[in-house]
Design a protein around this nucleic acid. Sequence first.
DNA 1: GAGTATGTTGAATCGAGATTCAAATACGCG
DNA 2: CGCGTATTTGAATCTCGATTCAACATACTC
Lengths: 207, 207
Amino acid sequence: MTQRKSRADRRADLVDAARRAVIRHGAEGVHLNQIAEMAGLTSGAVLYHYPDLRDLLTEAHHAGMERFYEQRIRKAGGIADPARKLITTIRSGLPEGPEDAGVRLLCELGGAAGRNPVYGSLLTTLFDRQVSMYQAILETGAAQGVFTLAGDSETIGRNLVALEDAYGYRVIARHHSIDAETAVELVLGYARLATGHPLAADAPGTR
Amino acid sequence: MTQRKSRADRRADLVDAARRAVIRHGAEGVHLNQIAEMAGLTSGAVLYHYPDLRDLLTEAHHAGMERFYEQRIRKAGGIADPARKLITTIRSGLPEGPEDAGVRLLCELGGAAGRNPVYGSLLTTLFDRQVSMYQAILETGAAQGVFTLAGDSETIGRNLVALEDAYGYRVIARHHSIDAETAVELVLGYARLATGHPLAADAPGTR
DNA sequence: GAGTATGTTGAATCGAGATTCAAATACGCG
DNA sequence: CGCGTATTTGAATCTCGATTCAACATACTC
């Protein structure tokens, strides 16, 4: 029998297993057995902890978005220079490639959000938080005189998040002419226009 | 018994029924019986015309995208002035509200595109065609001297399509602060920045 | 208007996945 | 150690949608 675990530990495992299963099989195409397998358990054990699968899936999506957002904050955390911070943040919002787990999860959610209010609200919240994150960077840069904003920070922030989203979808769908690097360059292009700053790309390999 | 129809007519009906069923139930959550009901038939009749459901769904998605694209072309068709043409085109790429059928279908497809190469390729093609459509408008405007492009037309076109996509998702997900009108205004804002043209909004009610 | 081809139904069957639950197992604690 | 409880299994059952197909209905042909 599989190693027995405490309730809290097992539930955390299951949330993570569900997250990975959704990425592989889709937000609505995922099956109980697939989640169980990911967690190294049988379906009965999953039901024991989550009698209603929807609860588990909601927690999984929530956790996935939280992880995505936290990672962005962390990557840009130590950077003081607004320009470099903006570049790093933009990079962290785009997938590293078509298999990028974080972005795939968000894409899966997008379609379902129109029919499922809970998912819609999760994505809406994430969007707003990301906009605020960008606003903080933009305003700091403007205050220091390094950015000359071509509009209010909310609008620019929204557009940055929107572009990330849309190009993320393109990369995940394996668009032939928009790979991960091109996507970064496209968003950076808009950021240059909106901040009046050249935003020189990092040296390759710098992450 | 339901009115009997020719093979071609019935298949066209089914493609349309499938399109509507997907919009209501999701690209992957849709069931044979739902499609049959939409078409006013029984499941057996659907299988008679489409032994493999995936073929029907692929045709439905294809038809939905074609319809979306054609509608855009048609709405902007008679307009000569590049600025008005650009405004109309932007409007036609955004949903009229959270229930907008055309955009909902595209959103449904987005998530599945990462796992289903056929869907990915459909969306990629649509994206490219929309970019070309914008490029034509932008280049015409630039040639006439009414637009001063802030970059190459391909980049601007890509960003316009990307912004439409992303804000379309927001509207469909019922974002509290981004409704259909706000979305139009956000994309128009970028278009102004990119073309150097004021792009005065149409008088309300003008469509 | 009989004959034939084609489209449609509805009931039977199939099968995959969800759900239940008694039994088995592992762990904590005295 | 051994008791009691929480966790997990695995097989049985349930459910629902897909699939099959013989019978029926409609339209076309001559």
